[in-house]
Design a protein around this nucleic acid. Sequence first.
DNA 1: GGCCAGGTGTAAA
DNA 2: TTTACACATGGC
Length: 204
Amino acid sequence: MQEKDSASIYTFLEKKNLLKESPKYWWPNAGSFEVVVGAILTQNTTWKNVARSLESLGGYLELEAFVQIDEVVLKEKIRPSGFYNQKAPRLLNLAKNIEAEFGNFYFFQKRVTREWLLSQKGIGEESADAILCYGCFREEMVVDTYTKRFLAEFQIEFKKYDAYKAFLEEGIRKRYTKNLNLHYARFHGMIVEYNKQKKSKSLH
DNA sequence: GGCCAGGTGTAAA
DNA sequence: TTTACACATGGC
């Protein structure tokens, strides 16, 4: 049982104005296929390295173009993100499955389920929620290592991913009835930015 | 030079 | 069901 409601933590973060430099939904190019690629590339990897990979992917960041990339070429392009020997085949497999199952990215956005994503090799709970929240604008909140570390500062800790997610979403749902996706997106975004800011301050 | 980063899959206890 | 380990680059 927790003392603090996640809505009060949300307010605490909002007062810090952490997202003034960020896009509306925080994740770069939210609502595009690029989010799917970024969600996998950023696994256990800093965003700075992911950004390099996305840049070298250039015009291939649309589903129809992405499925055409040769695996060896893709490995080379995503090299800065690390784990490229497993991320490249998983990304290609996922992109091809999206085309086969949904036809195009628009129908994927509208129809994909969390279960379908979790059945794909290379997508775990966090990546699934990142794709749903930022790629498909669904009412699902992301829990990552930043989130767990941040909540630990409030003595809030759980064993399982779903428990973190339920705690975070519940406070928001109690306070807001509209735009839940936007609130979840910004909540997670603020947590990441809070950690980045804290880290940069502790360096000097 | 060692540790960590916006995790996941697999194997073994 | 839990734990241990591989996967790999780049920043500090």
